[in-house]
Design a protein around this nucleic acid. Structure first.
Lengths: 338, 338
DNA sequence: TTGTAGGCGTTATCAC
DNA sequence: GTGATAACGCCTACAA
């Protein structure tokens, strides 16, 4: 079954290829009659304009690369990424863009792969998820003037196109509210050190404490990978060494691990120890106890990020902006505000 | 910063474009000296061969479409898909293929979108995940002779390229083992009716029971969506109406909901009610109680599926095959075998 | 309103 | 070994 091309249609409809092309793009200067005729022939022959050829002449692919800034497998295991991709996919589909998933074994390669997709012209732009500190990829993108939108924040580069929540403020507000509720002994189950949001949230925590003449013993901060094992170990170290009445986990998965660790150590949650997570992954409202958390509207962030990128792509005078999405504290069972 | 093309390189290196092209493809009939010279110029100029142009002349895109057979958002929320995609992405990257994510609001559109990607020549083939019963997409693909591999099973079409686990056998073996362990009162928390594997597993269950002169009251089978709410309701209906000592959930998420429902109804798990899941999602080994489950090697299945597809793409005489991956029962806390 | 011609960036076929 | 030349399938001036 050979592919039918624009020439085949043209011949069959007894017009020139350019006329067919005009029908495809629904050009106004073309008679209704030929338009109808050509359209009829097109679907009679099962013709579909070749996207590759179109991309070549238009110098646009209408596809967008997705970079996950960490090994794809682990990234996908995290609900955070699923959420973002949901948002991205929805808008992409609506605006008729394709999504190209970039995969690699490690962060270094991933970044090279993503850049390559741009260089070989396979994608028009990139959406970057949860960038690390010290991001070379961003440097390269800026240098080459490649369109991209970052979900998160770059340590080095100010005012680049991005959508984010204010992690500093989210953490700050949370601590204030906890202090007002009477909590006194804080410990932090932080995410990976390399992620920008980890530092931001930490800063928010510390500043809020400081303003209330409280301080945080560095031993009470545990950095951990996003695996259950690692989180459990960290939670164990905190809970067995430090008297804690409020444990703040920088991700719901970590929070979930913390709850289990606390309970297995004989603490009752939330009565003896209150535990808060971050993100509001769908699952955690169903846990027992359900997780009190700082909700981050990840799907929404994905939607905004790709919308911004598409706008940049289609409107050369628009160069993106910084969009900060508000967060929200959701009280459930694992920590009670008073 | 204008894109540098093969012509620019040719001019700079004082050779013809064809020579440069030969250097790119590392052709043997070309002198080492010019090869070196051209290579030098290429990266001096920052040249990358345009993938789109290449695709056009080669009539191959080296990219593969991913279809998820259900609304993308819900699909991504399920760890099953993340697992499969992990496997797919790893191999794709290794073999230098790109992955195109197909998104849509509903199943109908998704299938149209996927087909379109093929028709417009944006992808060379498709990997289909968890196909529904009565699959028109497969019919279309076969009719048009488009390359694809199905992860799962089609009700209508025998012997199509696919990788799957033997759901019938997995369920059958599980029941046999349960019966041997002394379980007598079975209830089933099945997935969505439309999925082929639901039917297959159900059949396995029923046949195993029948062989042991047991039968299953249809009321003891609850079909449910893959959401926590829906699963909890179904579990509630089962547990409040039927004396059950072994509850089989066709997905770990459903199993997890069942555990919680059972406990909230005052049953102790596994002492009064044993609960098994399917899939072995990473999370469930960390629950309390941890979930006994039938492990399905989803990452592995993803890897094999895309490997098969790529082989089909690159070797015209190979038309795919059926690969059945074995499953494994993993005993944890939510159900004990005796 | 329609057709002709040239080009998008490559590769492949022939020559030399 | 290397260089013209003609595709690949489409779009877009420019003409008519």
């Amino acid at each position: 079954m050979k592919k039918v091309t624009i020439k085949d249609v043209a011949k069959e409809a007894e017009v020139s290829p350019s006329t067919v092309s005009r029908v495809i793009s629904d050009s106004p200067n073309i008679s209704k009659s030929t338009k109808d005729k050509v359209r009829f022939i097109m679907d009679e022959m099962g013709y579909y304009p070749n996207a590759i050829a179109r991309s070549l002449v238009k110098q646009k692919t209408r596809s967008i690369g997705l970079v996950m800034s960490r090994p794809t497998d682990r990234a996908l295991a995290n609900p955070f990424f699923s959420g973002v991709i949901q948002g991205i996919a929805a808008v992409a589909q609506e605006k008729n863009y394709s999504l190209l998933l970039t995969a690699a074994d490690n962060y270094e390669d991933e970044y090279q792969e993503a850049l390559k997709q741009l260089k070989v012209g396979r994608v028009d732009g990139l959406v970057l998820l949860a960038s690390r500190i010290n991001d070379d990829l961003i440097k390269q993108l800026l240098k080459n003037n490649y369109p991209f939108v970052l979900i998160g924040r770059s340590q080095e580069y100010q005012s680049i196109p991005r959508v984010d929540n204010d992690n500093y403020k989210a953490a700050y507000d949370l601590i204030i509210k906890l202090i007002q509720s009477g909590y006194k002994e804080f410990s932090i189950l932080a995410g990976h050190k390399d992620y920008v949001f980890t530092g931001d949230r930490l800063k928010g925590v510390i500043d809020a404490l400081k303003e209330n003449d409280l301080s945080l013993d560095p031993d009470r901060i545990e950095f951990t990978d996003f695996t259950f094992e690692s989180a459990e170990k960290s939670a164990y170290r905190i809970l067995s060494n430090h008297n804690t009445d409020a444990l703040i986990a920088f991700d719901d998965l970590l929070g979930m691990a913390a709850v289990q660790t606390a309970e297995s150590l004989g603490f009752s949650v939330p009565d003896q120890i209150g535990i808060v997570g971050f993100n509001d992954h769908t699952l955690v409202s169903y846990l027992k106890p359900s997780l009190t958390t700082v909700k981050i509207p990840i799907v929404d962030m994905g939607e905004r990020a790709i919308s911004m990128l598409i706008k940049m792509l289609e409107n050369t005078s628009y160069n993106g902006e910084e969009k900060i999405i508000p967060t929200e504290i959701i009280e459930r069972e694992s920590l009670k505000f008073k």
